[in-house]
Computed example of a mutant assay.
Amino acid sequence: MDIALAVLALALIFVHLLSIALTAIRVKPTTRRGSEPQTQPPVSLVIPLRGVENFTALTIPRAFQLDWPNYEIIFCVADSTDAVIPHVRSNIAAFPHIRASLLVGDDRISANPKLNNCVKGWRAATSEWVILADSNVLMPDHYIATLMSAWRKDSGLVCSPPLGSRPADLGSELECTFLNTFQCRYQYAAETLGQGFAQGKTMLWNKPLLDSLGGIEALGAEIAEDAAATKLVRASGRHVHLAPAPFEQPLGTRSFAEVWSRQARWARLRRVTFPQFFAPEILVGGIPPLFLALAAALLAGADGKTLVAVMVAVLGLYYLPELALAKLKGWHVSWTSFPAMIMRDALLPLIWARSWMGSSVSWRGNMMTVGTQESTLSG
């Protein structure tokens, strides 16, 4: 039994290290520009907004400063009283050389409020290439060029997961460990193995292609538009590809409750939309291999010093390569990253268990009820 437990612990550590190696090979440093696309067609940038966030004053102007010869920006707001509207209008006035517009209204085609907010922008887009981008993405000047260069002959969609940056407290440090060396890592590793998953933070679509597959309304087939996009693209025989490097999402301050709520919501959505991939998530993180290794040592009759040595070895083997990955790629690393990673992994089993309880999630004041067959929205 002790040998079996030790083998299982080593297997989990191997999968962890493999995902780090695959990500290290696949992802370019965030400061490096991707290869320039062969052509530079017009692009429509559709940005849904709701409320003023920590870095709204920084992220909105970035959309007007992209190194691309021909693009338009379409800002979408559902509520005419939204406090973000003056920020949008002031930036449109400050950059008169960029074609930009603000559309206000709500098209309730689904239970997903963000998707509903994007519909009017999609319909108004004048280009064959459309980027749906969350308002809290900190776009580098090569944002469009990097996405366009990642499109391949067999692509159905190009995405980028968010890269947490600029944390201001322990809560945002914790969220960085969730976003960067956990979720971003596994997403790039999966794509490297031919199992790309869409990420709604940034999505580059070929508009005629998506329209031929049912249009933006088809993304309402699932409670999460990225899950619907993944299934739609795969069903068409194409692939979801990722940008060479993830784009920043500056965080600022985050309370523990905010981090828990967001991660629990995403976990529940993954459980509903991809249950076959979500179920094994109980085995990810450093806690399962640590528990298995200590159990194997105890069954083998190890003394206290040996148990401490096993614990140190497992923690070092598990977390030092993860920290090295972040450092190598220029992702956020600080003296709190190591304890934040341990805190994250201690929360993972609790988040996994919580996802199986109940069927509702809250997104910016909207309560969504998720299920395997249907979803409803109230708020």
Rank of each mutant, 00 (worst) to 15 (best):
T376D: 00
M1S: 12
S255T: 15
A326P: 03
I85R: 14
V284G: 02
V310Q: 02
A100I: 10
V119G: 02
V46R: 08
T126I: 09
F256Q: 06
H87D: 11
T177E: 15
P339D: 10
A227S: 11
L283P: 01
I92G: 04
L17G: 03
L315C: 14
W331F: 15
L269G: 10
Y318I: 00
P41I: 10
W260G: 01
F256R: 07
Y186T: 09
V15C: 09
V272C: 09
T181G: 14
R268D: 00
R166H: 13
S80L: 15
M343F: 10
A21D: 06
K305C: 05
R234Q: 14
W352E: 04
L294F: 00
G194K: 14
F277M: 07
F274I: 07
G286M: 12
P48N: 10
F178L: 09
G316A: 04
G316C: 11
F64D: 07
R262W: 10
T306M: 13
P86W: 06
Q187C: 10
P42G: 06
L17R: 11
R270S: 11
R238M: 09
A267Q: 06
P61D: 04
P29N: 07
W356I: 01
A224R: 07
A189F: 04
A228E: 03
A326Y: 01
L348D: 03
T253M: 09
R166A: 12
V84P: 04
Q40Y: 08
M311H: 03
F338N: 01
P289G: 03
P48G: 08
R238P: 01
E175R: 12
E36G: 05
I131Y: 00
L45M: 08
A257D: 13
K28P: 01
L18Q: 07
K153G: 13
F291V: 12
G200E: 05
M357F: 12
N54G: 06
Y188W: 06
W129C: 06
G105I: 01
V272A: 08
L8T: 04
G194I: 07
S172C: 04
V88Q: 03
T273R: 02
A124K: 11
G34Y: 06
T372M: 08
A83R: 14
Q249H: 14
T273G: 11
T273S: 15
L66F: 12
F95W: 13
T192A: 13
F277D: 14
T202I: 15
M139W: 05
R268H: 01
R271D: 06
R271H: 07
P349S: 08
L102M: 05
Q199L: 07
I98G: 07
T336S: 13
V88M: 07
V119N: 04
Q195D: 02
L290P: 01
M367W: 05
I13P: 00
V137W: 03
A267D: 11
P69Y: 08
P244S: 13
S236G: 02
